[in-house]
Computed example of a mutant assay.
Amino acid sequence: DGSVSLTGVLLVLVGAASWSVANIINKKASTKDVFGFLVWSSAFAPIPLFALDYAVNGSAGYTALVSQVNTTAVLSILFQVYPNTLFAYWIWNSLLKTYPVSTVAPLSLLVPIFGMLGSVVVFNESVPVSKVLAVVLIVLGLAVGLYGQRIFNAMFARPVRTSM
């Protein structure tokens, strides 16, 4: 219905700040083996996540897991772990290693666009005009953010006079 809670907004802001800090840590680490760095940095995340889940929900989720695990769930987890997390973050961290964070980070704005494209391809969803407008605004925002100064300079550059 479009309503949001203060807790939800705060969690989104904490997530964005965490994403930024993680990008800076990856950049400052100057690691040679980006994939190994990713695997080892991901090895410790499940421990606090399981502890947080247990603190919030108790053991209900773990007992339900045993009765609800099936092939679809296992394949979904494997997809989330391998191509979605390891491969995608390996590419992302490789970009951070090569380029400045200010150049790479705005590309994360493309995530909703690929999400919409995926829903069209996989689920045959329609794309209303409002979503097309949102995609156009995102791409224009990226173009201005990444290339705005170059475009401005090219449009308003004064011709150089050569003396004879």
Rank of each mutant, 00 (worst) to 15 (best):
P159D: 14
S163V: 13
T98M: 07
T7D: 02
Y89W: 12
L65F: 14
L11I: 08
I151W: 07
L65V: 05
I25H: 05
F35R: 05
Y54D: 03
M155C: 11
Y147Q: 13
S119D: 13
G61D: 07
P100N: 04
S41A: 07
G2M: 11
S5P: 04
L137S: 07
F123N: 13
T31P: 05
F114S: 10
L133S: 04
V69W: 11
F152V: 10
I47E: 06
L38M: 07
I151L: 12
T71V: 13
S30E: 14
Q149K: 15
S30H: 11
L142V: 07
R158P: 00
I24A: 06
L110Y: 02
K97E: 09
A88L: 11
Y147R: 14
P48E: 03
K32C: 08
I25K: 07
I91H: 05
T85H: 09
V122M: 06
S59A: 11
Q68R: 15
S5Y: 02
D53A: 15
V66F: 15
F44E: 01
A51Y: 05
R158F: 09
A88Y: 11
V12N: 10
A16K: 03
M155N: 06
S20K: 01
I47M: 06
V129M: 13
Y62E: 06
L95P: 00
S163T: 13
P112V: 04
L133R: 02
T7E: 06
Y99L: 10
V135T: 02
V122A: 06
Q80S: 14
S108L: 05
